[in-house]
């Protein structure tokens, strides 16, 4: 491409506003390197993405209500059944009775039922599977505290109700939970899916004031 320049006479090269072949190549090179870098980063991320999941991560069979009750009779009186040391399997009707009776359950609940779908509000469900890893900084939350009937994390004193709702302490939300499904009358936990705990301020059950009751964790 040539044109007349007022000073230089005939000149070769792209007209103003057009791109030279070399300029085009250079730009494409830049784009190519950019795309490659992004691919490299994304590939690295995908490569490092963990997919071998042992223990937590798969479908875990907990058992029937009857088998849990045989294993751990206190379950029918509202204490959480500790499954594979990582999960609280909460018998919701029994746990509510326990809180209302301040630790005493006159009518143990042997079979809470099969309402486990996550479409039902947590208070009305039969069974909840709470993840024992404290959403604050990850300590393992111990069994219900006798004085308060709350789950109280000893590390930094976060407190949760039997339904895993946040009540006090530095945690950012309630206890995380797993989806529970029924296979016949057997409870199965889908531990590959963790649901975030209910946000701070969620109160569906047990609205006692943290200041007014005794605690295990200060």
């Amino acid at each position: 491409m040539s044109m007349q320049h007022y000073g230089y006479g005939e000149v070769h090269g792209p007209r103003a506003g057009e791109m030279s072949r070399r300029g085009f190549m250079r730009r494409m090179l830049g784009v190519g390197v950019g795309i490659l870098s992004i691919e490299f980063l994304a590939g690295t991320l995908a490569f490092l993405w963990p997919n071998i999941r042992e223990g937590l991560g798969g479908r875990l069979t907990v058992g029937t209500a009857a088998s849990i009750a045989t294993n751990y009779p206190e379950w029918t009186e509202g204490l959480a059944y500790i499954f594979q040391s990582k999960i609280f399997v909460v018998n919701v009707p029994a746990a509510k009775a326990r809180v209302e009776g301040e630790g005493e359950v006159s009518q143990p609940v042997g079979d809470p039922g099969t309402d486990v779908s996550s479409d039902i509000p947590a208070v009305d469900r039969s069974v909840l599977a709470l993840y024992r890893k404290c959403p604050h900084l990850g300590c393992q939350v111990p069994q219900l505290c006798d004085q308060s009937q709350w789950f109280e994390c000893l590390c930094h004193g976060s407190k949760y109700t039997v339904l895993g709702e946040y009540r006090a302490g530095p945690a950012p939300r309630g206890m995380d939970r797993f989806v529970v499904e029924m296979e016949g009358d057997t409870y199965v936990i889908n531990s590959g899916e963790i649901e975030d705990g209910p946000p701070v301020g969620t109160v569906t059950f047990d609205d006692r004031d943290s200041q007014l009751i005794p605690h295990c964790a200060a």
Binding site: W49, P50, R53, G57
Partner: peptide, 11 residues
């Protein structure tokens, strides 16, 4: 947390 820990928990 997943990518950092290579799983759900420290292991």
């Amino acid at each position: 947390g997943f990518i950092l820990l290579g799983g759900i928990e420290v292991g």
